[in-house]
Design a binder for these strands. Structure first.
Lengths: 353, 353
DNA sequence: TTGTAGGCGTTATCAC
DNA sequence: GTGATAACGCCTACAA
């Protein structure tokens, strides 16, 4: 069989002698063994129906025998269609983001797309670097968290022309597509619930608002809702806190010192709320009698505490799946730019308020 | 300037006309603009010192003006040294794995390596598929969770010759390097603590043991420690449970029905332990008086509960960092195969026992 | 149904 | 210090 293609054989071996590849079998090696041309092997692997069954059979055997694995780098380069997508998360500490990630990965998996992961550590500058690197890697699409990005990030993405999906909010001027919900409306709805429950002096706690449109929107929703109910709505009843259970407890303590009349606290995420609830109980406070506590996200912990946390339910895994599906659609060439997918939210009233 | 290289210019434009690239600037485009050859641009970017300052300057300007981003696919193909690594996690639901992930990503980031993520959903078959895909993508190294892998996974990895790092355990015959600790010793140590504390009838709960060497090792450590203390050590005091807070509560209930004499339960992870603790309190049980509860992992929640959970502390982020560092060392060509890094563990005694 | 020619964008090699 | 040439492994376009 081999002598049917003496030229290819010699070309291949000469090449190997000169520049030594990885030693891995290539398409040409498989082709030679199967007694066909490389392109036929390529076709047999990608569109089997275009290849005669007998040929396909021989090729399959050769692939098997040589343990051939296609080189996707070469494939992507030649076809300029990489089978990778990237996602930038602000942190890997919070499960709410890995929940989204899970949805994304699961969807990409079904199409054999790989997910390249970046951790921006809440920094727009790091995000920018990551985006540049991803573009260098020629990923087929990018998922971003939030709608706040550096100027250069926007320029890079626009110039790249690849599908972009922003998550967690619904900006007026999305970079490409976006999947999220109205953080402002969600926070306003929770605030309305607290007011309706009869709480007179409500405080608000969130992660730092800088560079974080979601947090900013939630705070805005809180304040505007208070105002709409004729309540005093100054920034003095809003607090910022690092992200951890312990920090939630600490900020509750701070609030009770600064504003002793506070009878309810709305935390912009469940981790802080849970931390506050646990700390309150350690301190002998009754929830919600002495202080009511509301959260945001509806993490598993929220429902497992006693009393369980009133919170805002967000379908994070669904968010990730939608984002992944939009990316894939964009990669297929469908026009997704400008698409805004509202996944909504749900106020879950439980014992803590 | 342009007319100094008329041939290259025409070659480039002809190529573009024929086959339309992404429209993105290439090395050749930058070279033409800077009036040098492509290889000089390549050098200026990768080893600036080999290029004259003036040339470098001109090239830098051209790069800037054209918004050039190197194509790493092409670079990796040509140099056969991709700047990517891959990690397979069994799930994205548990923060203990994303903690590790964080460590890995942070280390890779420093060297501008990208991390490709796979979720095996606890399935060795899926892991195998993921590994094959990663190898097709020609990642430079792979991190695996645990030491149980399919036969083909082992074959594929061995044939690939790339650095492999197994995490969370210290197998006798590692695939490559491994970073972990003795799950058996850790579980035995916790069991010893419970016995020393005076608990007479201890139960053990873990995730399913099939295909999970870590869980299997922990159970073995539990049973052998009981035996070492002259206690009865049958499998009837071990239980398996899905992974969630709610499941932790459910399994505690099951134990109290089946083995009412149980006065302590050792959970092989903190999520189950926390779920059990919260459920116990809801049911009016006193912890540890009515039933003692111990966990494993030392997640943040463990320390925030009341009473705080006795648990086994594992430095997960450090584990991830070590794994990342080993990978990079392997990529650099250092011989890491056979390296076993023991990161140890620490029994953290708190109020729940 | 299968093959030929050449390009994808970069880097290794060797020469000047 | 800089460049010409070929190669990395595959795919598109066109041909047979």
């Amino acid at each position: 069989m081999a002598d049917r293609h003496p030229r290819e054989a010699s070309v291949a071996s000469r090449a190997r002698a000169r520049r030594k590849g990885h030693g891995r079998a290539t398409l040409a090696d498989v082709a030679q063994r199967a007694g066909v041309s490389p392109i036929t092997v390529s076709r047999a692997l990608r569109s089997p129906l275009l290849v005669a069954a007998a040929t396909r059979e021989r090729i399959a055997r050769a692939v098997e025998e040589m343990g051939y694995l296609p080189n996707l780098l070469a494939g992507s380069l030649a076809s300029s269609s990489p089978r990778t997508a990237a996602a930038v998360l602000p942190t890997l500490d919070a499960s709410i983001f890995t929940d989204v990630l899970k949805g994304v990965v699961d969807v990409l998996d079904r199409d054999a797309y790989q997910l390249v992961l970046g951790n921006s550590h809440w920094s727009l500058a790091v995000e920018e670097t990551l985006v540049a690197t991803f573009l260098s890697h020629r990923v087929g699409a990018i998922i971003l968290t939030g709608a706040t990005h550096s100027r250069r990030t926007r320029v890079l993405l626009a110039a790249s022309g690849i599908p972009v999906v922003e998550t967690w909010s619904l900006p007026d001027e999305p970079l490409g597509a976006c999947v999220g919900f109205s953080n402002e409306a969600a926070a306003a709805a929770m605030t309305r619930h607290l007011v309706a429950r009869g709480y007179r002096d409500v405080a608000f706690v969130s992660a730092p608002v800088d560079d974080n449109d979601r947090t900013a929107d939630r705070r805005r929703g809180f304040l505007s809702s208070l105002r709409a109910h004729g309540r005093e709505a100054g920034l003095d009843r809003t607090f910022e806190s690092p992200f951890s259970l312990a920090a939630g407890g600490a900020v509750l303590e701070r609030i009770r010192e600064r504003r002793p009349a506070t009878d309810a606290v709305f935390f912009a995420n469940d981790v802080l709320a849970a931390g506050a609830l646990l700390a309150a109980q350690r301190a002998g406070l009754r929830v919600p009698q002495d202080v009511a506590i509301a959260g945001f996200d509806d993490t598993e912990l929220a429902g497992a505490l006693t009393p369980p946390l009133t919170t805002v339910r967000i379908d994070r895994e669904g968010l990730g799946r939608r984002a992944g599906e939009l990316m894939l659609a964009g990669i297929r060439g469908e026009p997704i730019a400008g698409t805004k997918l509202d996944i909504g939210f749900e106020i879950v009233v439980r014992g803590s308020t």
